[in-house]
């Protein structure tokens, strides 16, 4: 699974893991029923304390994103289309926090900031198509 952590980023590692799992679910990279790596193997792979991984997994389970069945690996829970939409919007909001702060610090008008976002979106989708 594509999870990368940067322990020096100032964002707790358990949160980095949670954010990436949720992002992969929202983007469809992780599908309902997909199994997550066991705590100890992900912990060894990323070189982080296993308790950090189990904390991330437990919180994702509490949030209803992952499902634990006795004696089986943790799997991605099936989200209904409405939940999935909410999840996508949540992920986008989370990744825009820094951009919003920058717009405020730069003193840009809201309209101006929105126009830049629109332009970037258009450029990116044109590139995707070509």
């Amino acid at each position: 699974m594509l999870i990368v952590v940067d322990p020096s980023s100032g964002v707790p590692v358990f949160r980095q893991v949670m954010d990436q799992v949720r992002f992969h679910i929202a983007s469809g990279l992780l599908q309902p029923g997909d199994e997550l790596p066991a705590t100890r193997s992900l912990s060894a792979e990323l070189g982080v304390n296993p308790m950090t991984i189990s904390k991330a997994y437990n919180l994702l389970e509490r949030d209803g994103v992952l499902e634990r069945r006795p004696g089986r690996p943790l799997v991605v829970r099936e989200l209904d289309p409405e939940e999935l939409e909410v999840e996508k919007i949540d992920r986008l909001r989370a990744s825009l926090t820094d951009a919003v702060r920058a717009a405020l610090q730069l003193g840009l008008e809201n309209d101006e900031a929105l126009r830049v976002y629109g332009e970037l979106l258009e450029e990116a989708s044109e590139e995707e198509q070509s």
Binding site: P7, S8, V13, R40, S43, A44, L46, G47, V48, N49, P50, M51, T52
Partner: peptide
């Protein structure tokens, strides 16, 4: 060290100047 943690449940006290190692391993 992580393997010892997983397999034996060892308690660990470690000093380090490599703070990214501390961020990886320490609770």
């Amino acid at each position: 060290a992580i393997q010892a943690l997983v397999e034996t449940g060892t308690t660990i006290l470690f000093s380090s100047h490599y703070l990214s190692d501390v961020e990886r391993l320490a609770s």
